[in-house]
Write a protein that binds this DNA or RNA. Structure first.
Lengths: 339, 339
DNA sequence: CTGAAAGCGCTAACAC
DNA sequence: GTGTTAGCGCTTTCAG
């Protein structure tokens, strides 16, 4: 490949080499490279340094730099499941972008929900002098904070731990539920069913609360017989079909897109058309599904990217956060053609 | 900035503190902590060190360690799209697990396919003294290698660059196509249609080659009129429905799961049942879709996790690799109920 | 068996 | 303006 031996982790040319080549001291090199504010450097010397840098293809050693400065530019992200759910990756994406934007780099660890792996991951991050840790889960829920997390700054992403005092950022389920319902209401529906999940969770209670709030605001009485429970995937939606039809509703708000997908199948099987015979609204905006159903599904997006980004902003102190109550990120409605 | 937060972020206790507390020298502490092979340490001293470590909650500074050793334990992963496609995240996951297993930590960067971001990402990784870089794309394709990548060891994941000399690991599209077709063949089908993608790609040619190979092996003549072209998502599958039915095939191998999903809709609309009236086979094993269609879709899995894992193994020299020809990872067939 | 000392590559006072 | 010189926290000869 080349004469020097690159790739083996360390590159040969150091700041001292540059200094020598430019005929200046390392301090000068350091100053021009970092464009140090209070440093007076002659134009001529500065130019020589820049030339030498280019000449030697010098690349600063970040590790040495942070060592001497005492402050690293790492942010850790520990996730219980990086890819179990398709969109969880967006949390990484958002965190990575925001970290990057602020000159930080992301250290990622996946723990698969394994306690030991989790501790090891946190330990490793601490050893790497991370500025702080983002602890994230792949679906919104309450967690108990790993004790080791207390040893550094941390913010919980897509999860929370009441009483822990840790900052946390989660999706605004209630607003999401409200928006979803409002979308249906706006289309003129008044008898709106809701297929909620069987799993107790912030999503379960939040979306229901939102649904009720929207109905309320529209002056429609909440009708218990219009809310159904189903497992949160295709099968759940499918088996709910008859109940939905029997309910006399003209529209359904589904706990998530997968349920909506199952419902699509069920409805089609019964010969009903969407949205003519039944309007349907999903939740999550799962990209493989929502936009490609027939007809494309109207839904509410889970702001994973924003969750990750807001998490690092809070960690970096760029955005205020409360240890007492989770910061809510809006779930924007996405209108397509199922309404 | 955060000088008021002493215990956070950077920890105060250093190896020197431990040495002092244990009444030994730092060299001794270093030796016992790293369990240095050639170092004879008195049991008594060793014990005192361990006590001191526990007492002070000492945590080694990885950055200082790698600085002095000259060799870091970082591996970089640059991806053009971490989450654009749901399962791309599995590449990260696999890479992370394997890196971790070998005592390395993953530095992740997402470039969104942006050239400048890419260069910046690689530069940053180089500055962090990474052992090497995994360069990955979210779908299998040929790329032109970013010049900067030449400055370190690199392996291409889910992509390749012929003539670059870089090691590369990609899915075995042809074997996947063969397996898919064989699955259909094994169920007794002889007239098997193939909906291929309109996009020229290794997937397009590889899967077709596999399809032909399987037919060939079964003694069935390749019938050009049985292969159709469609855009690689739901819509493509849906609009292909009439062609498929008209072709007289009893089974269809779809370029991917999304196409299969569209076809499901089309078939259902025509009143045809799967698999009784038409057997269908997908490709990708996209988890939100495949397992949850009605009936669950038989498909072939894209080994993203393995791709990531194999990539770091090759980078670390744990697995042989050729710079000339990509290493192929098998795409295992997943049989469900659509056949 | 254990300690002193010389760096690793860089930054940050403080001289000159 | 620019160079000298201490470290940062740790590893690693090399004496004793």
């Amino acid at each position: 490949m080349s004469t020097l031996e690159p790739g083996r982790g360390t590159h040969v040319v150091t700041m001292r080499d540059v200094a020598k080549a430019a005929g200046v001291s390392v301090a000068t090199v350091s100053n021009v490279i970092n464009d140090k504010p209070g440093a007076r450097i002659g134009d001529e010397a500065r130019q020589r340094v820049h030339n030498a840098v280019a000449e030697l293809a010098y690349r600063p050693n970040m590790l040495a730099k942070t060592l001497s400065q005492g402050t690293s530019r790492f942010i850790g992200l520990v996730a219980d499941a990086i890819a179990t759910t398709p969109f969880a990756g967006q949390i990484i994406h958002g965190a990575q972008d925001e970290a990057w934007k602020n000159g930080y780099v992301l250290l990622v660890a996946n723990t698969d929900g394994n306690q030991a792996a989790e501790d090891e991951a946190i330990a490793m991050m601490l050893e790497h002098q991370v500025q702080g840790i983002l602890y994230s889960t792949w679906y919104h829920r309450e967690i108990t904070v790993p004790p080791m997390l207390q040893q550094t700054d941390a913010v919980l992403v897509d999860c929370f731990a009441s009483g822990s005092g840790l900052a946390s950022v989660v999706p605004d389920e209630e607003q999401g539920g409200r928006s979803a319902t409002e979308g249906l209401l706006a289309a003129g529906h008044r008898r709106i069913a809701f297929i909620n999940t069987t799993t107790p969770s912030p999503a379960q209670s939040g979306r229901l609360a939102g649904y009720r709030a929207a109905l309320d605001a529209a002056g429609i009485d909440f009708d218990e017989s219009l809310v159904f429970l189903a497992t949160p995937e295709q099968e759940g939606g499918f088996v709910s079909t008859t109940d939905i039809i029997a309910s006399g509703a003209s529209a359904v708000f589904c706990h998530n897109d997968r349920v909506a997908m199952g419902l699509y199948d069920g409805l089609r099987e019964k010969g009903l058309r969407i949205p003519e015979d039944m309007a349907v609204m999903g939740f999550d905006n799962q990209d493989v599904i929502a936009a490609h159903l027939r007809p494309p599904l109207s839904t509410v997006a889970l702001p994973h990217y924003e969750l990750g980004a807001a998490g690092v902003r809070m960690l970096l102190g760029l955005e205020s956060s409360s240890g007492a109550v989770p910061t809510l990120i809006a779930c924007p409605p996405i209108l397509r053609h199922s309404i």
